[in-house]
Simulated scan of single mutants.
Amino acid sequence: MPKLSREEAKKRIEWLRKEIRRHNYLYYVLNKPEISDEEYDKLMEELRQLEEQFPEFITPDSPTQRVGAPPAKEFKTVRHVKPMLSLDAAHKEEEIRAFDRRVKKELGVENVEYVAEPKLDGLSVELIYEDGKYVRGSTRGDGVNGEDVTENIKTIRAVPLVLRDEEIPLPKMLAVRGEVIMHIKDFEELNKELIQRGEEPLANPRNAAAGSLRRLDPNETAQRPLDIFFYEIMHVEGDGIKIETQWEALQTLKKWGLKVNPLVKLCKNIEEAIEYHHEMEERRETLDYEIDGVV
């Protein structure tokens, strides 16, 4: 690497961070990578080397700073921005149609659109961004209070440490809900490794995801193949941000660089939503993650 002046290094570091974030967005959110893993690793390595040479330019939101926090003695308890509620389940189509009738009656409308997506079987978390920067992450806990796992969530590569502002303005504050999961093939691979080391295999992908996220040492979490999908804006503040529907919320999350399930669908009426449920039942065994229904 050619020797750079302090000013040149600063500009190069800023460019590398922006470029790495752009590739993260292409890979995790759009699923359209432009470069190979090897080329991506080269960008990361160059950034690491420059930050080593010029440590005064290291920032907490740099892509190199995902891992490195010391182990915690215990997790602190934090209060959620708003309660993380659980869902009521319905098992029969008539229950769903009755729900639709109640909604239409309450709203005084003849038709209601629904947003449907697979209900992931993972660990529900709340992430908070201030001025576009990731500042806190916590588990659902009892729905009102959860465990502070900020440093552990930071190690998940699909979590942007800085939101995108290329398409819409950054929120002053954003609280977003997501589901941390472990893909089935990654779970099977992890269990093979555990057995080879003489350790107890994990029961299922959900337990594996929950246990991995709740390691006291973030460096251990970083070794686990965790992924995340975001699905709810719990609270947002910012000029010019107007979100009126769940569909708009999901499209906005994507524009900010937060990964949304590509199987999400806008259904024109309750019959389309029921049809979507049938489709997911048929596809369930072919998905690379576990689900327990549709939401």
Score class of each variant (00 low, 15 high):
Arg6Trp: 11
Glu7Lys: 15
Glu7Met: 14
Glu8Ala: 11
Glu8Tyr: 04
Lys11Glu: 14
Ile13Ser: 06
Ile13Glu: 11
Ile13Phe: 08
Leu16Ala: 03
Leu16Met: 12
Ile20Val: 11
Arg21Gly: 10
Arg21Ser: 13
His23Pro: 13
Leu26Asn: 14
Tyr27Trp: 15
Tyr27Arg: 15
Tyr27Cys: 07
Tyr27Asn: 12
Val29Ala: 09
Lys32Asp: 14
Glu34Arg: 15
Ile35Tyr: 13
Ile35Glu: 05
Glu38Trp: 13
Glu39Val: 10
Tyr40Gln: 02
Lys42Ala: 09
Leu43Gly: 02
Glu45Lys: 06
Glu45Asn: 11
Glu46Lys: 08
Leu47Val: 05
Gln49Phe: 09
Leu50Trp: 06
Glu51Phe: 02
Gln53Phe: 09
Pro55Asp: 05
Pro55Lys: 08
Glu56Ala: 07
Phe57Asn: 04
Ile58Val: 14
Pro60Asn: 06
Pro60Tyr: 07
Asp61Val: 10
Asp61Ser: 08
Thr64Lys: 12
Thr64Val: 11
Val67His: 07
Gly68Thr: 09
Gly68Pro: 05
Ala69Asn: 07
Pro70Ile: 08
Pro71Trp: 06
Ala72Leu: 09
Lys73Pro: 00
Glu74Ser: 01
Phe75Tyr: 04
Thr77Val: 06
Val78Phe: 02
Arg79Tyr: 07
Met84Lys: 01
Met84His: 00
Leu85Pro: 00
Ser86Cys: 00
Ser86Met: 11
Ala89Met: 13
Ala89Thr: 12
Ala89Gln: 11
His91Gln: 12
Glu94Gly: 01
Glu94Ile: 13
Glu95Ser: 00
Glu95Ile: 00
Glu95Gln: 14
Glu95Pro: 09
Ile96Asn: 05
Ile96Met: 12
Ala98His: 13
Phe99Pro: 06
Lys104His: 05
Lys105Val: 03
Glu106Met: 07
Glu106Cys: 01
Leu107Tyr: 13
Val109Pro: 12
Glu110Tyr: 07
Asn111Glu: 13
Asn111Cys: 03
Val112Cys: 08
Val112His: 10
Glu113Ala: 08
Tyr114Phe: 15
Ala116Gln: 13
Lys119Cys: 11
Leu120Glu: 15
Asp121His: 15
Asp121Met: 12
Gly122Thr: 12
Leu123Ile: 14
Glu126Ala: 03
Glu126Cys: 02
Tyr129Asn: 03
Gly132Ser: 03
Lys133Cys: 05
Lys133Trp: 11
Ser138Phe: 07
Arg140Lys: 10
Gly141Val: 01
Gly141Asn: 01
Val144Cys: 01
Gly146Lys: 02
